[in-house]
Design a protein around this nucleic acid. Structure first.
Lengths: 168, 168
DNA sequence: ATTATCTTTCAATATATTTTGAAAGTTCAA
DNA sequence: TTGAACTTTCAAAATATATTGAAAGATAAT
């Protein structure tokens, strides 16, 4: 397989993966393109390689920068902006985890707390079914949140060293 | 807050969470409804509570059954089918992890393996950038897959006991 | 074998999301 | 300043996804 085909394949797959993760496909494709580029790319180059419009490129690059997955690179003496992706996969993973935790888990936890204070007797089986389920989910989500916080803060080596050994 | 409002709130939130996870909103709402129901519900009841059509209900309940998150319940002497959700949150979580792993991680791993065999010299910086990134992602994804397999197979108590202690 | 009850299917429709591209905005060199 | 080079915005168009509901398909009681 040639480099060019392989890149196209990778961009394609990363795009599908992204869309299953609730990230838009184009954003994931731009990310993929920058991940495997040896040097920073311009907006123009991204547009050409992915056959997408200028506006689309701009919006999605901005989103990637909001996620800290991509940075602007200024080349002295050049007018245009270049973009490069964070290539340390551990960092990429934790950045994504952080964003997803923020968007998904945190709001859920907030709501679950509120829902635990409903009126009514625990002897009412409907009330009991509700509080039991919500309580369990809350407990579980709380533990997941703790685990994620720790992972997000952890150093790469620590993860690769001790964490994985545990699961073998 | 009254039980009815609380249920509605929970269904709503679980639906949003689901859609961010790439699961369709209605499927997640039906799941939520069954999770907090004290008894199994009929298709009719689901339709009424969520104000959705019969066809939509049927399709999404079927998807939930494919995921093993929901089961049919036959009540002797009754013509219609009832549905109940798996309520053990640990099981719910592992069932979801399993499905997502299957849909997302596994296909990615397959493609990454293929991409590591590209033609060209490692002294070419473009080739090197590609193989480095793809290689790292592959390694990372492989570890994630192992960790997930272990978690999916693990017993609830084991998880709550030892795993969480590690992250404190 | 007929009918009443319940479930499933799927083409048409509705809704939500993404993309485009031209116009407006910005920046900087001359 | 001016204007060339580049970036950003956003309403309209295109695309993708979810929903409806009526018709067809089951199933079981009579």
């Amino acid at each position: 397989m040639k480099l060019k085909e392989a890149k196209a394949e990778f961009v394609q797959s990363w795009g599908i993966l992204g869309s299953q993760w609730g990230i838009n496909r184009t954003m994931a494709q731009i990310h993929a393109l920058l991940l495997v580029a040896s040097d920073p790319l311009t907006a123009e180059e991204i547009m050409d390689q992915l056959s997408i419009s200028r506006g689309n490129t701009n919006m999605n690059v901005r989103d990637l920068m909001d996620w800290d997955l991509v940075q602007k690179v200024i080349v002295p003496g050049e007018r245009k902006e270049y973009f490069k992706a964070e290539k340390d996969i551990w960092k990429v993973a934790t950045l994504i985890m952080y964003q997803r935790k923020k968007r998904e888990l945190d709001p859920m936890l907030k709501i679950l707390s509120q829902l635990e204070t409903i009126e009514g007797s625990q002897t009412d089986k409907d009330v009991k079914a509700f509080t039991d389920t919500v309580g369990n989910i809350h407990k579980f989500a709380g533990q997941a949140e703790k685990a994620l916080n720790t992972i997000i803060k952890a150093e790469e080596n620590w993860f690769w060293g001790s964490f994985i050994k545990l699961f073998k």
